[in-house]
Amino acid sequence: METNFSINYENKVVKVTLSGSLDAKRAPALADEIKKLIGKDIEKIVFFAKDLEYISSAGLRVIIFSKQKIGIDIKLYMVGATEGVLDVIKMSGIDNIMEITDTYEE
């Protein structure tokens, strides 16, 4: 399956860099990668979304899925998302479960 993300797990932090479209075609691969992290000691998942152009419902579901599957206490971040992407996140209420920032500091 075509992927357009990279994922990195280090020091209890998962960093996911997204680009292009996170749609029904590509979201399942990301969900599969996140599934592999179930059970690991994770405090934060950070989505770097500067180059993410489009997110569909399937993409949004992966964000919800991350919180549910990895753990309700983990912190989610969405960093540098474009206005179009942020808009969808806010309207669907997903901004309630994550912190939205312009930049991310270690």
Binding site: V88, M91, S92
Partner: peptide, 13 residues
């Protein structure tokens, strides 16, 4: 968000 099929989430929010 109807075009994304997210109407349920939008109404709930």
């Amino acid at each position: 968000t109807g075009r994304f099929g997210m109407q349920v989430d939008e109404l709930k929010t």
